[in-house]
Design a protein around this nucleic acid. Sequence first.
DNA 1: GTCTATAGAAGGATAGAC
DNA 2: GTCTATCCTTCTATAGAC
Lengths: 209, 209
Amino acid sequence: MTENDRLTEEKIFEAATAVFEEKGLDGARMQDIADRAGINKALLHYYFRSKEKLFLAVFDNLAEILFSKFAGIFQQDMPFDEKMKYFFLEHMTFLQQNPKLPIFILTEVSRNPELVDKFLAKIDLNSIKTRMSEDPANTMPPKMLPHLMISIVSLSVMPIAARPIIEKVLETAGYNFDEFYEERKYLAPEFIINAVRQFKSETDNNTTT
Amino acid sequence: MTENDRLTEEKIFEAATAVFEEKGLDGARMQDIADRAGINKALLHYYFRSKEKLFLAVFDNLAEILFSKFAGIFQQDMPFDEKMKYFFLEHMTFLQQNPKLPIFILTEVSRNPELVDKFLAKIDLNSIKTRMSEDPANTMPPKMLPHLMISIVSLSVMPIAARPIIEKVLETAGYNFDEFYEERKYLAPEFIINAVRQFKSETDNNTTT
DNA sequence: GTCTATAGAAGGATAGAC
DNA sequence: GTCTATCCTTCTATAGAC
């Protein structure tokens, strides 16, 4: 029955992931998770002891997924401009398929900052930094790197995190969110590339002056 | 006792604002709000009937504050570059003083999108659009305006919304969040201005070709 | 208007049968 | 391993005294 075990535990885990992602820790109900998994509440506790432990397992997994997505893409070995185009295409498509993920992580982390430590340990930040600083960025002071990286992530994440608001505003102006989002996959990297190129030439000017 | 009424209702409202902002709708407890306001639970219901009604009052007020902040700043009458510098300085300082506000609004709206309608009615989107399109942006297609505006807001909001994560990552690299945040008040507008300037010259090239 | 006391419902967790 | 039944706590909400 080990096969059966695995299946049940997995069904619970998937159901819990969906419910926590949708409702958050406080809004999630063990009953909802049980219903969604097609079993009863008692089994949840048999497999995961408590709501908190179940939540931590789910959070851990989701945080890993979200952050390995950053890391994986940044670590691609290609020129900066290509990397930007590749990142936004991949990352924004990923978020499209996981629209609740950013808000879930941001909210839970905001209300319980200790959660951050758990998943940051898993990520090799240095290798991302190295990869990023290989390209045009090496013309900028190291201090600028965090700004650049956070700008990149901001442009990618916000449209999904604020989707209900953006969608309504766009509708008011006669635009469609899905179209907007597809456009943005291509415009966002241009935006970054332009900003960096401009910055680079400014730095060059300063240096040559 | 009308004076006293106003005071009590206001105390409750302030306490509720703090608790809802911190814990969200599901995590907030009427008991916490009562304690914080220095009264008892029964009085909450005397003034606001139910938790939901109290929440709606609080949400409404906070959404108004957050969005009037956007609108007010964008409506300033000054050249585009100045407007950007002014916006990031004002807005990021405002968020610094209200760090829980963005996550609160984003989370509640994400879990109950109907909330959006309520506060969007209050905002004059057209006047913002007009103000924005007066400047360099009138060299870009109208379709680009939403992208630009959402990019601006993204760069301003994300550092606060993701603060616990960013803070830890920065620390790992030997940087300090507060310093980073102060730098960003000045770097973010440069970033936008550069990206737009570059775009503008590209458009010009295309036009002259 | 403000309080104490309590109703009534819901949710997390466990006992015990199969 | 899975279920039913139930305990116990917590939370919203109200009744009723002052």
